[in-house]
Each structure stands twice: as C-alpha cells, then as structure tokens.
Simulated scan of single mutants.
Amino acid sequence: MIFFARLLLRRAALLIMLLAAVFVAVDLLPGDTARAVLGREAAPEQIAAKEHELGLDRALPMRFWRWIAGVATGDFGRTARGRPVDELLVDKFPPTLLLGGIALVLTVIVSVPLGTWWAARQGAASTRLLQPATTMAVAIPEFVLATVLILVFALGLGWLPAVTITGRAGFPTGPDMLVLPVLALAMPQIGWNTRVVRAALADAAQAPHVETAVLDGLSARVVLARHVLPFALPTIVTSFATTVGMLLGGSLVVETVFNYPGLGAVLAGSVADRDTSVVAAVVTLSGVIILGMLAVADGIRAWSLRGRR
C-alpha cells in the first residue's frame, strides 16, 4: 500500500507540473484573452476591466496557485466568456467519452486475438503482412487517417457521413456518424497494441516453466491460459492503459476533423481565446483518467508478481 501511495503521489506531482507547463504555454501564445473575448473594437478601458475580471492582471504563478486551489475544492473556475468550466465539461465530455470508449473496446477486441494469433504463428506466411500493416497503422497520424477515410468512404463511395450532425442531447444523431471517427482513432492503437500483445506473449512463452508445461503434455490452450498469459498480462494491460491517454489526445484532433461535438471543439476554441482555465481543465480531466488506468495496470502487475512467487 505504501508503494502504491508513493506512486500515486509521484504521478499527481507530475500532473501538477504538466498543468504548470500548460499555464506557461498558453500565456506565451500570441494574442490577448480579453481582446479575443470582447473583439477588436473594444476600448482600452474595457480591455483593462476584463483583464481585471479574469485575473489576468495578476502574476502567472499567483493565477496558477488560485486555479489549483479551486480545483482542490472541485471548482475549475469560469471560462473567459463567463461560463462555468464544470458545466462545460459536463456537457462536452460525455460525447468524447463515448467516442473514446468505443474506440478502446474496438482496440481490445481486435488487437488481443490478432496479437495472440500472430504470436502463435510466428514465421507463418499468413502473418507476414502483419509486420508492415501494423507499422503503417502506427505511423500514420490520426488527422491524416481521418482525412483519408473521409476521401474514401464519404466523398468517394458515399457510404458514411463526413461530418457529425448533433441532436438536442449533444450526441450524434445516428450511429453511422461514429464509424469514421472511431476508425480514425482505433486503427493506430490496434496496430500498436497488436504488436505489444504479440511481443509480450512471445517473451512469456520463452520462460522455462512454459517449456516444462509443454513437455508435460498440456494442451496449447491450457499452456496459454495458465502459463503464458499471466506473465504477459501486466505488459498488455499497461499498454491498454497508455492507449487510453492516446485515445483522449487523438480524439481532440479527430473531433475537429469530423466536427464531432466533444472536447475537441472546446479545446480549439479555448486555445484561440487563450483561455487557460479551459485548457488546464481538459488536461486535468484527461490526466486523472490516465492516472486511474495506470493505477489499475500497477495493481494487475503487483497481483501477477505475487502469483509468481
């Protein structure tokens, strides 16, 4: 327990350092927050009043400290346009969570069987295409892949919509509008995790106890389930935990390409307004989710190591 507490504290400290870097980065962006909100025709007195209202006339460390103190009590502050950030996250995060969740499920149900099959048939002619295919999937950025999917399946074949139409609840009006964004998010992660699953299983299969189990006449299924998978599981789970962060980051780009009603548009608008509170709130939310997934991965790793003793 002490080990996990220290690990969580280190990761929480890392998240705070990341948030401090976000404040500095947004502050260094060209432009003026007050003028972006009020417009170019605003008088200097209006600009000064707005800066005082937003706290922009304070030193950057003081602004960061006040924001962190508010977050500790559950208050993410207000946007530069006066809307509570908490309300904005409640409205826009569920569609992003839906998109990322479907992409994660698709990644798991495709990459685990594919990586297992690849590990079981290493060197076979049927698996030779997986090496270049997974490499290509990992190498292509999400926005490039999203553009290609739109060109092929929306503009070329006309099978799927290129943009997202939002209903009253803030979600896409039809499931077909999720297909291309989910594929754009999941395909790179499927390529990466397929390689991780294959490598983890191949490494675990080299352990001496696996060879002993094979010589004892156990079936391949029993050897895989009882002697290979428990050793490979921590690496696989850690990879999927990292994938959560990659999906959250990638969804912000993919949402912009497909006009999807999630945090992507919010983040793009907040960067344009130099709205530090919104950018930092999105980073905090993503960071907490990633920390939670990594904590789960650490727990599984500890359980696996205890089982080996």
Rank of each mutant, 00 (worst) to 15 (best):
M1H: 12
I2V: 05
L9F: 07
R10D: 01
A12M: 13
L14V: 08
L19G: 03
A21Y: 02
L29K: 06
G31F: 05
D32G: 07
E41G: 05
I47F: 04
A48T: 12
A49C: 01
K50S: 08
H52T: 15
E53R: 09
L54R: 10
G55C: 03
G55Y: 03
D57W: 06
R58W: 00
R58T: 02
A59Q: 13
L60M: 10
P61K: 08
M62K: 07
M62R: 12
R66K: 10
A69Q: 14
T73C: 05
T73A: 11
G74T: 07
F76W: 06
G77H: 11
T79E: 05
A80E: 02
G82W: 13
R83L: 12
L89G: 00
D91R: 15
L97W: 04
L98V: 06
L99G: 00
G101M: 08
L104C: 00
L104K: 00
V105K: 01
V105D: 00
T107C: 15
S111A: 15
S111I: 02
W118E: 01
W118M: 06
A119L: 13
R121Q: 09
Q122C: 01
A124R: 14
A125F: 14
S126K: 09
T127K: 02
L129W: 15
L129M: 13
Q131D: 15
V138L: 13
F143L: 14
F143M: 13
A146C: 11
L149A: 11
I150S: 00
A154P: 12
A154H: 12
L155G: 03
L155K: 11
W159F: 10
L160I: 07
L160W: 12
L160E: 12
I165C: 02
T166W: 01
G167Y: 07
G170S: 05
G170M: 06
P172Y: 09
P172Q: 10
P175V: 08
P175F: 08
D176Q: 14
L183D: 04
Q189Y: 10
W192P: 01
W192K: 06
W192V: 03
R195Y: 05
V196H: 06
V197K: 14
A202N: 04
A204W: 09
A204T: 04
A205W: 03
A205K: 09
P208N: 10
P208D: 14
E211C: 03
T212K: 03
D216S: 09
D216K: 15
V222N: 04
V222R: 15
V223A: 08
R226C: 07
R226Q: 14
L229N: 12
L229D: 11
F231Q: 14
F231I: 00
L233G: 02
L233F: 02
V237G: 08
S239Q: 05
G245P: 12
M246F: 14
L247S: 08
L247G: 03
L247Q: 05
G249I: 08
G250K: 08
V254A: 10
V254S: 10
V254Y: 10
F258K: 12
Y260E: 06
L263E: 04
A265L: 15
L267A: 15
L267S: 13
V271F: 03
D275K: 11
L285D: 00
L285E: 01
V288C: 07
I290D: 01
L291R: 05
A302G: 00
W303V: 11
G307Y: 08
R309P: 00
